[in-house]
Amino acid sequence: MCPRCGSVEWAAQEASGRGTVHSWIVSHHPNSTGETDETPRIVALVQLEEGVRLVSNLRDIDPQDVRNDMEVEVSFAEVGDVRLPQFRPPSRILPR
């Protein structure tokens, strides 16, 4: 519900898919299935261009190369039995 007006109307809004890495971690702890991930997964809090923060994963980058506030862009991938937004360093210059 909207905290300002109480409305429960909502609509999907297309986002640019661009954002920055607000914070990030590498998980060494066993995952939900009780096993350790084969390659450590980077979990990131992504600040989308539109202002929303979203928890996701970083791909196509080594943990030692991750920097706070670096630009990332969305891609989609099958993770287990669900399709999830994932983020990676920009592969090309996107029109602003």
Binding site: V43, V55, N57
Partner: peptide, 9 residues
Amino acid sequence: PYGLDTPAK
């Protein structure tokens, strides 16, 4: 689903 599944993480 992103692996954020323990208080530590």
